[in-house]
């Protein structure tokens, strides 16, 4: 079945007429994703390679039946695009945009959690369910269909681990990049709960990094609620405190949010943590054989 994206996904791209939105939106369509619409205010009635463009998300929902929104608009307009999608009744919002102010995202988060919308991102690579649909910038060609659920705060690190899995002959149910910001729409716990309920997923890989306490929360959740095997990788063991390591959320504050602390929290709950991406892939292969 996979999670978040599947054969029922009907995608609308916010910012389809922009260069990023167009490039990735069409790439997602070429992969087989059902791209039904684009939204750019003022460009309603146009089309991008045959994909109709609407002025509002509400039009994309009522006229093209969109149920999933992929947001590519610049940071200062992205929060508006999130609210618009939620208020138009979109089920799943995936926001790729980086550099959204944390306070803006905090208010939006509090709002859409109350509406029951599934939100992925911001500052994320998107979601890929191999063989079914791709929404975002994940290079689908390096992944194959299979039973490993992959959830990560990073983009390229996820590709690295996916690539290592593919080389060992293993595929994925869904790859979810939850994003590298301090506040993201879905946490590890949210996504792991979906993988636990998904028939296709047999094993879950969590790829975390320094900052915050979502890995620690995930460890406690897995111990209490998850029957499937979970393996992990954490990036940032060599990161100094007080420095933002590329992602706005990747920062050790005082003594909290360290990679070592996360590793210990995961291991204390029986979740094995690989030392390198290669080792994690090998651990997955061992478990599944």
């Amino acid at each position: 079945m996979a999670i978040i994206l599947d054969n029922d996904t009907r995608l609308v791209v916010a910012g389809l007429t922009g260069s990023e939105g167009r490039f990735h939106g069409l790439r997602n369509r070429a992969y087989g994703t059902n791209l039904v619409a684009g939204v750019t205010p003022g460009k309603g009635g146009q089309d991008v390679e045959g994909v109709p463009v609407f002025d509002t998300v509400a039009d994309a929902v009522s006229e093209a039946g969109a149920n999933t929104s992929l947001i590519f608009v610049p940071a200062r307009f992205a929060v508006d695009a999130i609210y618009e999608a939620v208020d138009a009744g979109i089920d799943t919002v995936i926001c790729i945009t980086e550099h959204i102010p944390a306070h803006d995202m905090l208010r939006a988060y509090t709002y859409f959690r109350g509406q029951g919308t599934t939100m992925i991102g911001p500052n994320c690579p998107g979601v890929l369910s191999p063989g079914k649909a791709n929404a975002g910038i994940i290079p689908a060609e390096i992944f194959s269909e299979g039973s490993v659920g992959l959830v990560s705060r990073s983009g390229t690190l996820t590709y690295q681990i996916g690539h290592e899995l593919t080389q060992l002959g293993l595929g994925n149910s869904t790859i979810v990049g939850i994003g590298g910001d301090p506040v993201v729409g879905s946490s590890f716990v949210d996504v792991i709960a979906k993988f636990e309920a998904d028939e296709q997923t047999e094993l879950i890989v969590l790829v975390g990094e320094i900052g915050g306490d979502e890995e620690e929360k995930a460890a406690a959740y897995v111990a209490a609620h998850v029957t499937k095997p979970v393996l992990a990788y954490i990036a940032g063991f060599s990161a100094p405190p007080g420095k933002t390591m590329g992602h706005a959320g990747a920062i050790i504050s005082g003594s909290s949010g360290t990679a070592q602390g996360k590793k210990e929290a995961l291991e204390a709950r029986g979740i094995e943590v690989g030392t390198t991406p290669t080792e994690v892939a090998q651990m997955v292969a061992t478990r599944l054989r």
Partner: peptide
């Protein structure tokens, strides 16, 4: 990428 960057730093140390 930030995640791959942090991981690369770790692997160099490893």
């Amino acid at each position: 990428g930030a995640g791959l960057g942090m991981s690369t730093v770790d692997v160099v140390a490893h």
